Simulated assay, not measured.
Amino acid sequence: MKKLDGKIALVTGASRGLGKGIAIGLGEAGATVYITGRSFSEAKDAVGGSLQETQLEVEKAGGKCIAIAVDHGDDAQVRSLFERIENEQQGRLDLLVNNVFGGVRALGELGGKPFWEAEPELWDRVNDVGLRSHYVAGVLAARLMVKRREGLICTIASWGGLSYIFGAAYGSGKSACDRLAADFATELKPYNVASVSVWPGIVGTEQILRVVGEMDAENSTSDSAQIRSMRDRYNWETPLLTGRAIAALAADADIMKRTGRVQIVAELAKKYGLTDKDGDRPVSLRSLRFLLPMLRPKLQHYARFIPDLNLPWWLLLLTMLRSPKV
C-alpha cells in the first residue's frame, strides 16, 4: 500500500526543477498532487518545462495530478487556487510544499555584481514570488489544515540562508524562509499542524544542467563525463530525492517532533532509508565528507575516505561556511 494514498498535496512552482521532482516523489507515494506554474503546455523560456509534462510524469509514477496555471505574484489567482482545492477535496489539504521561486532571471541578470549596483526592486523580483508567496500560500493552507487539525507545510529554503550565496537579496530571503517555517510551527502546533523548512543539497535541475552543458561545450568534453565530474565533485542530488524525502515526512506519524526545524534532504534520506533515482544517497551539507573538499579542493579525490560526520548546527552558525561556486 502506498504511504500517501488518499492524501491531498499542493506543490507550487512545479513546471520543472525541484517542484517537478517533488511532485513526482509524492506521486510515487500515491498522493493526489495539485501543481502550479505559469506554463501549462509550453515553456516560457529556453530552459523548458511545463505543467503538462510534470502531470504526465506524476501519473506515470503512480499518483493523480491536477495541473493549474497560477501566477503566484497575483494573490487573487492564489486565493482561487485554494478555493478550488477546498471545493474539490471537501476542505482537505494534507500537504503544502512552498517551492515556487521567481528570482532566477533577476539573479542571472545581476551577474555577480554587488547589491548596490542593482536597482532596489531586485529585492521584490527575488522575494515576491518566493518568500512573500510562501507566506500567502501558508496562510490559505493553514486555514484548511487548522479546521481538520492535521497537515504539514514544507517551505523549500536553502543553505543560502546560512552562508553567502547569490547575493544579499537571495540570502536574506532564504534565511527568512527558515524563520517563516519556524514561526508558522509555533502558531500551528496547538492545532497539530506541522511546519518545516527543507534544505535540498546541490540539485541537478534543468537550469544547472544547462550551465554544465555550456561549460562542457566550452571545454570540448563529453556531456556525460563533464556532468559526472561535476556531480561527483559537488555531491549532487536530483530533484526526485527531495520529493521522496518530503513524501516520507508527510507519512511520518511523529512529524510533530520535527516541526519548526530545518530538515536537510540528505539527512532525511538516511533516516528513512531513501535513495536517489540512480540508487545513490548523498551526504549532508554539514557532513565533513562534503565540507572538507569544499574548503580544500585537493581533498576532492579522497572524499570517500573522509568520515561522514555531521557538524553541529552551532558550529556551522559560528563558521558561516561559504558555498561552492558552481
Score class of each variant (00 low, 15 high):
287 S>W: 07
214 E>G: 01
102 G>A: 02
309 L>F: 10
49 G>P: 08
249 L>E: 11
126 V>N: 05
84 R>K: 15
2 K>Y: 03
319 T>V: 13
24 I>S: 07
242 T>R: 00
60 K>P: 00
105 R>C: 00
248 A>Q: 01
173 G>S: 07
169 A>P: 00
283 V>C: 14
286 R>T: 07
24 I>N: 07
172 S>H: 05
247 A>M: 06
137 A>H: 09
300 Q>R: 13
295 L>D: 09
251 A>S: 15
119 E>T: 11
189 K>C: 09
65 C>W: 13
280 D>P: 00
316 L>V: 07
144 L>C: 03
216 D>S: 14
30 G>Q: 12
45 D>A: 08
106 A>V: 03
51 L>Y: 09
39 S>E: 09
203 V>G: 04
5 D>K: 14
73 G>R: 10
34 Y>P: 00
17 G>T: 08
54 T>L: 04
19 G>F: 02
116 W>E: 14
81 L>W: 07
144 L>F: 02
142 A>I: 10
179 R>I: 10
3 K>N: 12
228 R>N: 12
228 R>V: 04
201 G>R: 05
288 L>K: 12
309 L>H: 03
134 H>P: 01
248 A>D: 02
8 I>L: 05
226 Q>V: 09
42 E>P: 04
258 R>A: 13
14 A>Y: 06
85 I>K: 04
60 K>W: 01
271 K>R: 14
44 K>G: 15
184 F>S: 04
110 L>H: 00
302 Y>S: 11
234 Y>S: 06
105 R>Q: 14
228 R>F: 06
29 A>L: 01
205 T>E: 03
288 L>C: 12
61 A>S: 02
224 S>K: 13
79 R>S: 10
34 Y>D: 01
281 R>G: 02
106 A>C: 06
29 A>G: 01
212 V>N: 02
248 A>L: 00
166 F>G: 00
230 M>D: 07
208 I>R: 13
74 D>T: 09
9 A>L: 06
9 A>I: 07
221 T>G: 02
284 S>Q: 08
118 A>D: 05
129 V>Q: 04
238 T>S: 13
304 R>K: 14
80 S>K: 15
40 F>W: 08
266 A>N: 03
204 G>D: 08
58 V>K: 01
136 V>S: 04
177 C>Q: 08
268 L>F: 04
46 A>K: 10
60 K>I: 01
5 D>Q: 15
183 D>V: 11
174 K>Q: 04
156 I>E: 00
109 E>Y: 02
288 L>H: 03
24 I>M: 13
191 Y>I: 07
17 G>R: 08
105 R>E: 12
58 V>Q: 03
152 L>M: 06
158 S>F: 06
295 L>K: 15
325 K>T: 10
157 A>T: 06
93 L>N: 07
63 G>R: 07
247 A>F: 10
270 K>T: 10
287 S>Q: 05
305 F>S: 14
260 G>Q: 01
9 A>M: 05
51 L>A: 11
164 Y>L: 10
258 R>I: 04
107 L>M: 11
259 T>E: 05
236 W>N: 03
8 I>N: 04
271 K>T: 14
236 W>L: 15
209 L>C: 11
248 A>K: 04
239 P>D: 02
205 T>N: 01
308 D>R: 10
282 P>W: 12
311 L>P: 09
210 R>N: 14
290 F>V: 15
267 E>I: 03
288 L>I: 06
259 T>V: 02
